[in-house]
Nucleic acid binder design. Structure first.
Lengths: 222, 222
DNA sequence: GAAATAATTTAGGCATGCCTAAATAATCTT
DNA sequence: AAGATTATTTAGGCATGCCTAAATTATTTC
């Protein structure tokens, strides 16, 4: 039986695989808030169920079956987030926590209706792509705001953090998917970046700017 | 910690208490699909948490605290059902099963938004009253369709079964909360009752008619 | 390449919530 | 009121998923 816990492990393995390529026991333990020893035990179980390929001391990879489940969980999570924000008007800093529960509780039928009600959206409120019903993950085409140079204009595409207070901070500056930004200044020695958003200028630290991704970058001379 | 299982036990205890007054271990076991011995163990735990008053061999009663949790679970369940039917257009025979999961996954915030989006409804798709936010259960005022006599007119108020095939059967006759019915004939010896609904006549067995509740009964001579 | 450090696994335990089989208590029969 | 029946509890187990402490393997560092 695919338990909630198994779904969570597969989802996290998928996401670590996507961002880091390789997935270690320690990474998973940190990500799941669990002791490394607990992860080892669970990985053995997942391997026994043919959901991952597990080589002791070498990490794991999802099997096709495991990947399909992971994509389904991510799809349910992001559709839930989008529905909560779009239809029920919930602020974007709260939807992630809610969706963590809902992703395990929603049925295929309900998700299908939610998807239709939203007009088959392709991204969630944070700009993350929503896996399709047939298990494909749309690919992203964005770069960190921190990588832009003075004069560049772009549109916010995605925010990689889910931390509520950080999302509220971004929101207070008008930074969310779809917003236009222009880089006014970039301080040296890893200093802050000054950006213009909706007529206002804001100084943003590099760490923050590395979590905001933009698309459609145009240099000043365009 | 209030687990999903505890919520289910409290909900069922509440519902058995409502319909039968007294709640035995065996009733709960049957209702929960679990062995009586398992119920005994859980009742001890619930009593230790001060959620029920438990007297061995004598049954259980909810404490104020236990009752509050039970009412909250029932509220979440019924609001979820109403939302699925009303907003997402899900057929009434499917909503109960979905809500069994959702009642444990929805947060107070989301339920608040759902409640507001529905305009603070007082009943679910089966006509059952929805407990209020402050923990009061609106009382019902209905009688079984099976208790009417020839010539009586009434409006369907509630259906007590949650069985999908039975609900579809009722739906195929146009029987659902709000529908008008008139009793045309009542066969003797516990025989079927013939009712007129939306211009059509249907013969309905006594067992079925006992699960349909009506309100606003008017005799033929009114 | 041997010692130190870091990562991972093994071993033994704990809580939850279920089970069956056996014992006990309550209730019904006659 | 004794015996039979039914309801309930006790006792002992199992699976899941977590933990800590100790052992092992891999990786650095000198």
């Amino acid at each position: 039986m695919i338990t909630k816990t198994i779904e969570d492990y597969l989802k996290v393995i998928f996401q670590v695989e996507e961002t880091q390529g390789t997935v270690s026991t320690t990474d998973l333990a940190a990500e799941l808030g669990v002791a490394p020893a607990s992860v080892t035990g669970m990985l053995k179980k997942l391997a026994a169920h043919d959901l991952v390929t597990y080589t002791p001391y070498q990490g794991v990879t999802l099997t096709a079956h495991g990947r399909a489940i992971a994509l389904r969980v991510v799809r349910y999570h992001r559709l839930a987030e989008q529905y909560l924000a779009e239809v029920l008007g919930m602020p974007w800093d709260e939807v992630h926590a809610e969706a963590e529960e809902l992703e395990h509780a929603l049925s295929e039928q309900v998700v299908g209706r939610i998807d239709a009600a939203l007009g088959r959206p392709t991204t969630d409120p944070h700009g993350e792509p929503i896996p399709t019903e047939d298990g494909r993950m749309p690919d992203r085409d964005d770069v960190p705001l921190a990588s832009l140079v003075v004069g560049d204009c772009a549109v916010v595409a995605r925010v990689s953090s889910r931390e509520a207070s950080f999302l509220r901070y971004l929101g207070s500056m008008g930074i969310y998917p779809g917003a236009s930004v222009q880089v006014i200044a970039v301080a040296p020695f890893d200093g802050p970046l000054t950006a213009q958003i909706g007529g206002q200028q804001y100084a943003i630290g590099r760490t923050a700017a590395a979590q905001v991704f933009v698309a459609g970058v145009r240099g000043r001379e365009d």
